[in-house]
């Protein structure tokens, strides 16, 4: 998409002393993918939350500290990425899908 800004979403307005943020961007061949589904699974693989990506391919979760799996679903594609989140920090995850 034209005009998509590379890099993470702004954390302006968030009280980061209380939040544990996992966010990122889904892309295919270097282009952002909007309308993909990103599922947040906890350390046991149990579903915790799901969001569709924005038009610029971005997604964000407010999680708890610990190990998580991000499962991204798009037509014809599924990608899992592991991430460790810490209180007061933003964990940035870039998800590249193919096909």
């Amino acid at each position: 998409m034209c005009g998509a800004v590379a890099g993470g979403l702004s954390i302006e307005g968030l009280d980061m002393s209380k939040e544990t943020v996992i966010q990122g961007q889904v892309s295919r061949d270097g282009q952002p993918v909007g309308g993909a589904y990103v599922r947040l699974l906890d350390g046991t693989g149990e579903f915790t939350a799901e969001v569709p990506t924005s038009a610029t391919g971005h997604f964000r979760f407010f999680a708890a500290p610990g190990s998580w799996t991000l499962r991204t679903l798009a037509p014809g594609a599924q990608v899992d990425r592991q991430v460790v989140a810490h209180l007061g920090q933003v964990a940035e995850v870039e998800v590249a899908i193919s096909a």
Binding site: L14, E19, L40, A49, E50, F61, F62, A63, A64
Partner: peptide
């Protein structure tokens, strides 16, 4: 957690 993880807490 107090809310689903896609919402502020």
């Amino acid at each position: 957690l107090l809310a689903p993880a896609h919402l502020p807490q």
